[in-house]
Nucleic acid binder design. Structure first.
Lengths: 269, 269
DNA sequence: TAGTGGTCTAGACCACCTC
DNA sequence: AGGTGGTCTAGACCACTAC
């Protein structure tokens, strides 16, 4: 059986929304106004089905909208829950004053300072340069690079992945880049000690929905985008590394401090 | 009728995906490997339904996944199409060397240089400060601010919205901020001429799925996140403005150049 | 065991686009 | 007119969680 939803009414040209959108809109309003605060459970599908006089599938379509918009999450057997996010701030402009993320220095201390428990896995590979990385390192696409890869967690929640590519000419000058295990003093410092100082970098920031692979690694649910950060570091001569960081978009924010910040720290008057 | 999909097979513990995911995965592979290049049309739902031996609704679930992941778009009567994006780069660290986005200077020239046609609408309002803005401007939440709002298009495609808030004390010193219409020399320059020079700024970048309102204003389809950029500008004394820019995530990328960039412009050797 | 969400089907009608 | 996607229903069975 099919019941037509009246789409053009006598309200002056406003066309009526489909029923599943009405469901989504109503619930979104109730989430916004605090009827269902972050962490609260929504009514079950069958309850909503009765309330909106809609089939279960229609209600599911509406809830599906909210899920893909990142407002609610669902789990089998448990129900729908209003999403709650606490974001972690990363200061990208202060991130590398001779302490380098790779071995967790800056990141781990940031996380610990925030009263959270950091944890990371780490591996080193020889890897052909992906096209975008090769372009930025000014090497041939597919040529040998050393990839130092890091998977970061905060309180055991996957937080971000970070892949740093070094061109092979640099690895000859600084062989420990290719060795597994941390470089205690930090890779940036280690490179400086071997005659290659990073004097500037170029950051590119973008966003998109995660690939299925990223969604798996970062345990991202539907409706959560990733924040992509690509940093290419330079010596005074040429590119020396390219770092690709993939953040869970719901948990992270990036900052840049540029110029004189005195006006930021002063007390309001 | 219901046909159970075998979920545990004899392949060594790999559990079988639900059918709609198989559909999505198969199509995603074919998109990735170029069977369906960007801009190409996918087979119709009924064709896919036959190919995968699934009901139309199941095929729709699979296609829905790809849509919410931003890989394909759909339009009534036309079919499904592989999404294609050309991204526009915005250099945030060079954005304000005394040319200010508000009147379109930097942005319009950037767009024109890229061979595209810029276009924007503009309005000025007195607006109570939103909480996050008030916090950054160090004023009371809800206190009066001047809001200069800009809606930008490129080749008539909605590109971004930008809202700049000025605290009321500043408007007393620089009254033209509250007047509608462009400030020819740019607001930053205008402010400098009136004794308030911006000496530094603080940028915050985040991402999330668009609100229904943003989706409407930016004509964002499902599966496209927004990129949020909040810039707070400071004099040597205190905050003087807060600019909130909302980008379509599929069309924009942000850049920062920090430190010496000589190594970036050099030729590869 | 009961309740929740997850998957799937079959079939209906509607709205949009192209010819 | 005929094809495409968009909305909606009714009902089935499965998987997970809680008690």
């Amino acid at each position: 059986m099919y019941q037509q939803v009246e789409r053009v009414s006598h309200d002056g040209g406003m066309s009526k929304q489909p029923k599943y959108r009405q469901v989504a809109d109503a619930l979104r309003r109730e989430i916004d106004n605090g009827t269902y605060p972050p962490g609260a459970r929504l009514p079950s599908e069958s309850e909503l089905s009765a309330r909106f006089d809609a089939s279960r599938n229609t209600v599911r379509s509406g809830l599906g909208l909210l899920v893909t918009q990142g407002l609610v999450t669902s789990s089998q057997g448990l129900g729908y829950e209003v999403a709650k996010h606490e974001v972690f701030e990363l200061n990208a402009s202060r991130f590398e004053d001779l302490s380098f993320p790779q071995n967790g220095d800056a990141y781990s201390t940031d996380v610990t300072n925030a009263g959270r428990r950091p944890h990371q896995t780490f591996r080193v590979e020889i890897h052909p340069a992906p096209d975008d990385v090769a372009e930025r390192l000014k090497v041939e696409p597919g040529s040998r690079t050393v990839l130092r890869f890091c998977h970061r967690f905060v309180d055991d929640v996957p937080w971000s992945t970070q892949a740093t590519y070094y061109p092979s000419w640099l690895v000859e000058e600084a062989p420990r880049l290719a060795e597994p295990g941390d470089i205690e003093q930090g890779t940036t410092r280690y490179l400086a000690e071997h005659g290659t100082e990073q004097v500037g970098y170029f950051d590119e920031i973008s966003t998109r929905m995660p690939t299925p692979d990223e969604a798996r690694r970062l345990e991202i649910g539907a409706g959560v985008p990733v924040l992509l950060w690509m940093r290419t570091g330079y010596s005074d001569q040429r590119p020396i590394r390219c770092t690709v960081t993939t953040f869970r978009g719901d948990l992270n924010r990036m900052n840049y401090e540029i110029g004189d910040q005195a006006g930021r720290e002063n007390e309001p008057q």
